[in-house]
Computed example of a mutant assay.
Amino acid sequence: MAPDRLDPTLRDRISALLATRRGVRLLALRRATALALLVLAAGLAVQPRHGPPESSVLVAARDLRPGQQLSGADIELRAVPRHLVPDGVLRAAAAADGRVLTQAVRRGEPLTDVRFAGSAVPSRAGSAATPIRLADPDVADFLAPGRRVDIITKITRSGHSSVLAEAVPVLAVQPADNHGDQGRLIFVGLPGEQAAAVAAASLDQSVTITLR
């Protein structure tokens, strides 16, 4: 005689009870997991969001030209992500004050050691960085920032020359591979009026220097 399905056996009752208990445990586990995820999300939402670590570096406060002798108005400190900080960057205003740029720098660009011509050169009150193109570009190989030179016009066929300035400091020297066909450019520190006279003379006369 076939078993009556409407009258379940003890085995069927036990199986149904176990299945019910497994379902209850699974539902409880799902609810606990969902609650834990909600708590975690809430905790992350109230935590402060930290960006990448930053470092203070010296940058140009405005566009700067080659040969410019820097002062406090030309530079500023700015916090930038550490992974964007270039090698050789300057981090204090004192490290750039009085130094002379050999290349142009855009506003906001970090200032690195390779942008400058050697050590800072003490400037006299009212002095200006004056560009001069040398008649003999090879002479610049013997120059370095801080060296004192006399500036003279080149001796003409008549044997005449004139001294334009004496014992002036060299501020910057143009790299040898960057002067083209126009002659080697150097920057010297001169008082305002004398700077204008020397710059004007160097435009229409061949200029050379003697080393001190």
Rank of each mutant, 00 (worst) to 15 (best):
R212L: 08
L38D: 06
L10I: 13
S119G: 04
Q205E: 05
L134H: 04
I155T: 14
P110F: 01
G183P: 09
A200H: 10
A165R: 08
F187G: 00
T153P: 09
K154Q: 09
A199Y: 14
K154I: 05
P145D: 02
R5E: 11
L18N: 14
A200V: 15
V100I: 02
E193Q: 11
P169Y: 05
L35Q: 09
Q103A: 03
V149P: 02
A96T: 00
P110H: 04
G180V: 05
P86A: 03
L44D: 12
R107C: 01
L27C: 11
F116L: 04
L6N: 15
G146R: 07
Q69T: 12
G192N: 12
L211K: 15
Q194T: 13
T20Y: 11
L185W: 07
G183R: 10
L44V: 15
A60E: 00
L211R: 15
T33V: 12
L164V: 15
R21D: 08
L26V: 14
A144G: 06
L10H: 12
R157E: 14
R25W: 11
L27M: 13
T112Q: 09
V168W: 00
A165M: 06
Q69W: 01
R106A: 14
R133F: 05
F142R: 08
V139A: 07
R31P: 03
L185C: 11
T156P: 03
P8E: 08
P66H: 02
V198W: 13
H179Y: 13
T156H: 08
A42N: 06
R133Q: 07
V139E: 07
I209H: 08
D4S: 12
A93H: 07
R11H: 06
A117G: 04
H50P: 02
T112S: 15
T153D: 11
A19S: 14
G189T: 00
I132T: 06
A129H: 07
S161I: 06
N178Y: 13
D87C: 03
V105W: 01
A34C: 04
D138H: 12
F142E: 09
A104L: 04
